[in-house]
């Protein structure tokens, strides 16, 4: 009997342990979901121009171009081609131009233009001189140029001045970088 009682006790104990085990509460909650991945939107340098051999002097005046503007190609950068990786508005471009310049006349207004694909896209900067002959070194950072398809494109730097006077662009010191920023 003793053995029978022990067997019953063992069974009961096991049953109790099983019951306790099942009554320890709900299973631990699953680990929290991982935070959403940080969406990668890399900034990629896709074009960098080398300085020109000598400064570029623009005498001012001249005839209006097809858009009615007195714009002159500087010839810099010489090999202005780059490739955009992503299509349309899935990425945009930044133009970062550092181009020291001087105007011969006090109060003259110089316009510097970054043109992509022969004025299909681009960005205009304008500046006015407090004194003729001063050399200005300024940052010219374009806003996000959007809607440009993937593929090969060309870039050129153009200039015009109002009123007509001589502008010197120190292309021998210039830097031009174009970045592609993925939009997510």
């Amino acid at each position: 009997m003793k053995n029978d009682s022990s067997a019953v006790l063992v069974v009961a104990t096991l049953a109790g342990l099983a019951l306790l085990t099942t009554r320890q509460g709900p299973p631990p909650p699953p680990p929290p979901p991982p935070p959403p991945p940080v969406t990668q939107s890399p900034v990629k340098l896709i074009f960098e121009a080398q300085p020109a051999a000598s400064p570029f002097t623009y005498p001012g005046g001249g005839g209006a171009d097809a858009r009615g503007q007195y714009t002159v190609r500087t010839g810099w950068p010489i090999n202005g081609t780059f490739t955009k990786q992503y299509d349309g508005n899935t990425s945009h471009l930044w133009g970062d131009l550092y181009l020291p310049y001087s105007g011969s006349a006090l109060g003259s207004n110089v316009y510097i233009q970054l043109s992509i694909d022969n004025w299909t896209y681009g960005f205009n900067w304008s500046d006015v001189f407090a004194k003729g002959g001063n050399v200005k070194r300024q940052q010219m950072l374009s806003h996000a140029m959007q809607g440009i398809p993937a593929g090969n494109h060309t870039v050129s730097i153009n200039v015009y001045q109002v009123p007509a006077s001589t502008t010197t662009l120190y292309t021998n010191l210039a830097e031009l970088k174009i970045y592609e920023v993925k939009v997510v």
């Binding site: 109060g107 207004n109 304008s126 500046d127 006015v128």
Partner: peptide, 15 residues
């Protein structure tokens, strides 16, 4: 930004 000539345009990037 200051202006050396009345009416002249001046474009700036600020960050």
């Amino acid at each position: 930004a200051d202006f050396s000539r009345g009416g002249a345009l001046d474009a700036h990037t600020y960050a």
